[in-house]
Design a protein around this nucleic acid. Structure first.
Lengths: 235, 235
DNA sequence: GCCCATTTTATAAAATCTTTATAAATCCCC
DNA sequence: GGGGATTTATAAAGATTTTATAAAATGGGC
């Protein structure tokens, strides 16, 4: 789970075994984990500026709900409750007083990790966020024009500069046929001279890469005697 | 629930009664609710820019998981899955492919509302705090833009002026490729003339310094024949 | 004058682009 | 429907371009 790398997570629970179990599990994913055995200790740890807080509800002295209410306005990171109290009313209360998630004990470590990762991911999205990217999407295929990156089912596929240029041009004009000369002119520039085989070769490479990740698809169609075109809807 | 006022929520489910039930419930809280009966309709509704998406997993044509994967990179709002599939593996899958929450059917409307409100609240918190953010964080790396200081694992690393300029520009636009000419123009100024090797050299120095403190990471990627870009998620 | 950041130069290494040759597919006219 | 011509596909190798590295030169500030 790449998202968890480098993040600081505060785990608060009065049961030491649970704390150490969670700590170890999250550290395995690359997070830095700081811990507290009760609400007061947790308050002291806040100066470390955690990226996420996991909070047991039932603790002596200062319980999880109380702690959450105290810090919620000062701390903008997600707060996840973990509790043996399974009633719906408890879950709703936890979410209402400022919690972002509520997991009932006994819980699966894998689900805890998945939920922690999801919250961290969403935080990153919003923080690194306000990047309006131009992304072309055709089914499972995505062309990130600013990042010059191609993804199929979220998986990045390396394309060379020329390959990307050709794909971009075609995909920006779905359904329109481009002759090889047109492609050459648009991508290499007006004065450029070159063999039309060059295009053929690049198209072949593009198709090969797309074909590996998405075998049934046929994004680039050959229009015989004319050129190539991008299929509006991949088949 | 104050948070829900004025928000737009997209509800996607093929069972019309469920859609209308959720719609009514959320509208009572002050949200604007738009709906879709399947994945394709949902895609068409995305132009409305919802603040949150509720997604049924099992739908004909395009299921919730598939839809989520398709849109996750373009849509930064929270995505909540609602599903009759209750197995842990399903929940974890949903959270792993970009979902932010997973609620099993049959669900309590009150809990759904509480979870929706919690996600909206957290988004508002982050977006509000985003304005005066002056420290960029990428994994273990922190860029203090005000203090022009670079820290890895809390340890400060000295960077020269140009090095910091280049890093700052790249890191402020994660995922976007900058050509050497673009970098030169943005940092040295329009009229400046210079060798593109200068950039190469500075990038080398930056990578060397980052590499010492964080050997596995690769923050700046070479996009062959195009330029350099900052990885949103360091690999 | 010395130190440090910056830039330039030269060379090595890597990746890509283009060409060439050959095979396969498609079209068109008879 | 078949044969020849044309167009496109495939594969591999050479040429070219681009980037990485190292080291030396420049130039300003103390």
């Amino acid at each position: 789970m790449r998202v968890m790398k480098g993040n600081t997570i505060l785990v608060v629970d009065d049961e030491a075994e649970i704390v150490s179990m969670i700590k170890q599990s999250l550290e395995n994913e690359g997070s830095e984990v700081i811990t507290a055995g009760d609400g007061r200790q947790a308050l002291e740890q806040l100066h470390r500026n955690p990226d996420l807080i996991i909070l047991d509800v039932m603790m002596p002295a200062l319980n999880g709900f109380e702690l959450c209410q105290m810090i919620r306005d000062e701390v903008s990171c997600p707060i996840l409750f973990v509790s043996a109290k399974q009633k719906e009313a408890d879950r709703i209360q936890g979410l209402s007083i400022g919690g972002d998630d509520y997991i009932t004990k006994p819980f699966s470590l894998r689900e805890l990790k998945a939920r922690v990762a999801a919250h961290l991911r969403q935080n990153q999205r919003l923080l690194a966020g306000n990047v309006h990217r131009r992304v072309l999407r055709y089914g499972f295929l995505q062309l990130d024009l600013q990042g010059r990156e191609v993804r199929i089912r979220q998986q990045s596929i390396p394309f060379t500069a020329r390959e990307f240029d050709i794909m971009e041009l075609l995909a920006l004009h779905p359904g329109q046929v481009f002759s090889k000369d047109q492609l050459y002119e648009k991508i290499w520039g007006l004065e450029a001279v070159g063999d039309s085989n060059t295009i053929t070769e690049h198209v072949k490479k593009i198709r090969a890469k797309l074909g590996v990740a998405d075998p049934q698809s046929n994004y680039i169609t050959t229009v015989w005697g004319v050129g190539y075109k991008w299929e509006a809807i991949p088949s």
